Amino acid sequence: MSASGEVLVGLAILIGLVGVVLPVLPGVLLIAAAIGVWAFVTGGATAWTVFAVCATLLVASGVIKYAWPGRKLKEAGVPNRSLLIGAILGIVGFFVIPVIGLFVGFVLGVYLSELNRLQTQQTAWVSTKHALKGVGLSILIELFGALLAAGVWLVAALAV
Rank of each mutant, 00 (worst) to 15 (best):
V9G: 01
V9H: 02
G10L: 00
I13H: 05
L14I: 12
L14V: 13
G16K: 00
V18L: 11
G19F: 09
V21G: 05
V24K: 11
P26D: 03
G27F: 01
G27E: 02
A32H: 05
A33Q: 08
V37P: 02
F40E: 14
V41F: 02
V41Q: 08
V41L: 06
A45F: 15
T46G: 12
F51M: 13
C54K: 00
C54E: 01
V59W: 04
S61C: 00
G62E: 14
Y66R: 08
Y66K: 10
A67E: 06
A67P: 06
W68A: 15
R71D: 12
K72E: 08
L73T: 03
L73S: 01
E75S: 09
G77W: 03
V78Q: 00
P79K: 15
N80S: 10
L84Y: 06
A87M: 10
G90Q: 12
V92F: 01
F95G: 11
V96F: 05
V99A: 10
G101F: 11
L102I: 04
F103A: 09
F103Q: 11
V104S: 13
G105R: 05
V110A: 04
S113W: 10
E114L: 02
L115Q: 15
N116A: 11
R117G: 15
T123D: 09
T123W: 13
W125G: 13
S127T: 05
S127E: 00
S127V: 04
T128G: 13
H130C: 02
K133G: 13
K133E: 15
G134V: 09
L137N: 13
S138I: 04
I139W: 03
L140F: 06
L140T: 12
I141K: 06
F144H: 11
